[in-house]
């Protein structure tokens, strides 16, 4: 290892606070990027199982009629 002790690795002769701050931020963002979508998917599936019956979508109907005389009167 480049540093001879744990303390030296933490201190990094003065620059440690900045380096470890960046490391912490990176860990937070990387974990967030991987965990958040997975968690929202799991929560969505859980919600889905609760209201299982999908509300029936009204089936659209189209009728085409040939009418030879339009005016009803």
């Amino acid at each position: 290892m480049y540093f001879d002790s744990l303390q030296a690795a933490l201190a990094m002769d003065g620059h440690g606070v900045y380096v470890w701050a960046v490391v912490a931020a990176s860990v937070v963002i990387c974990v967030g990027l991987l965990v958040l979508p997975a968690r929202s998917a799991r929560r969505f599936i859980a919600e889905l199982r609760v209201d299982d019956a999908p509300e029936p979508r009204a089936a659209p109907s189209v009728r085409i009629e040939e009418v030879n005389n339009a005016s009803g009167s």
Partner: peptide, 18 residues
């Protein structure tokens, strides 16, 4: 922890890895 230090910037250069 293992890469050598940059003689100009010191250890703060390790931020480059992120």
């Amino acid at each position: 922890l293992y890469a050598p230090m940059d003689f100009k910037q010191g250890n703060s250069f390790r931020i480059i890895y992120f």
